[in-house]
């Protein structure tokens, strides 16, 4: 019975926007950043992307076969998870890292909690966090790109920014010619993908705008209105990638407009705190994960009031 009838809540509006179409759009939007990663970090980046995507899709397939569930790999969401996971890995990690990460993302974070739409944290980011805590040495070493002089030390732009913001070139940050994980470096490609998704009405601009905006304001205020520094801070690290592609995950971000604003500002605030005061150089993934956990709470307090609605315990 359950297999034949799709039971959904109202409104029952027919739409051409299926999960599959949305996820394919996200894949298209992610493509430029991936291509930039391959250009900067070579064939190994391509291998990591391929392994990560294949692992995620296979993990979902095998899990659903084992549990006698409907196979849902046709909705492309596992592909998106695989891409995002790969984009969050440095290109120098051993090839078993994306395999373990893919299994953690799909089985532990997504399928065990009920599959697509039921996970309470972003699968790719959670997998990255687990990998980062487990093998910090492998995950925290960022290679330099192929177009950088060998003499340049491999410190990430974030590490350099903290001490000497003038020596970081904004152009390099924009085109991606700086050390980092393989999908985060080229900000132009990421921004292009984001604009494509907003134009296709797949993505709501409020979360990325509030996330990046609040982080920018905080860096501007605390640096004594050092405009140059604040701009570089938001173009460094994985803030762009996280704000556009990972904070906006449907299942783990709030539904209402106000909720999305709170979510975005919260992410920006936590990112700022981690970058400015904590031991970790980059706080993007942890800020998003933290707000993921708060999402049900935000949803609860920002639920829209319908006209004529009566207070429940009034």
């Amino acid at each position: 019975m359950q297999k034949n009838l799709a039971i959904t809540s109202c409104p029952h509006i027919r739409s051409r926007k299926t999960t599959q179409k949305i996820m394919q759009d996200v894949c298209i939007a992610l493509a430029p950043a991936g291509i930039a990663g391959i250009v900067y970090f070579g064939a190994r980046a391509a291998a990591i992307i391929a392994i990560s995507v294949v692992t995620c899709v296979l993990a979902e397939l095998v899990y659903e076969k084992m549990m006698n569930q409907r196979v849902t790999i046709g909705d492309w969401s596992a592909v998106v998870t695989g891409l995002l996971l790969a984009y969050n890995l440095p290109s120098t990690v051993p090839l078993w890292i994306p395999i373990i990460g893919g299994i953690i993302a799909i089985v532990l974070v997504k399928m065990l909690f009920g599959g697509i739409g039921s996970n309470f944290m972003n699968p790719a980011l959670t997998a990255r966090a687990v990998l980062f805590v487990s093998w910090g040495g492998l995950m925290g070493t960022y290679p330099i790109t192929r177009y950088m002089a060998d003499t340049v030390s491999a410190a990430t732009p974030l590490a350099v920014l903290a001490t000497d913001s003038a020596s970081v070139s904004l152009v390099d940050l924009m085109i991606g010619n700086c050390p980092g994980v393989l999908g985060e470096t080229c900000k132009l490609a990421i921004l292009a993908g984001g604009i494509f998704l907003i134009a296709r009405d797949v993505l709501d601009w409020k979360i990325p705008a509030c996330f990046i905006g609040s982080a920018f304001l905080l860096f501007l205020l605390t640096s004594g209105f050092n405009f140059d520094y604040a701009v570089k801070e938001i173009f460094a690290g994985s803030l762009m990638l996280g704000a556009i592609f990972m904070a906006t995950d449907y299942a783990t971000s709030p539904q209402s407009n106000l909720g999305r604003v709170i979510f975005g500002v919260g992410c920006g605030l936590i990112l700022f705190i981690i970058r400015a005061y904590a031991n970790y150089p980059e706080g993007c993934s942890f800020s998003i994960l933290f707000m993921n956990i708060l999402t049900p709470l935000i949803d609860r307090y920002t639920a829209p009031k319908y006209f004529g609605e009566v207070k429940q315990h009034g």
Partner: peptide, 22 residues
């Protein structure tokens, strides 16, 4: 073998406990 350090920390405990309960 490179040890999976998260297993020595509390999150690893939660994850293992959950999986064993399953």
């Amino acid at each position: 073998y490179l040890p999976m350090a998260i297993m020595n920390q509390v999150p690893g405990g939660f994850i293992t406990l959950g999986l064993m309960m399953i």
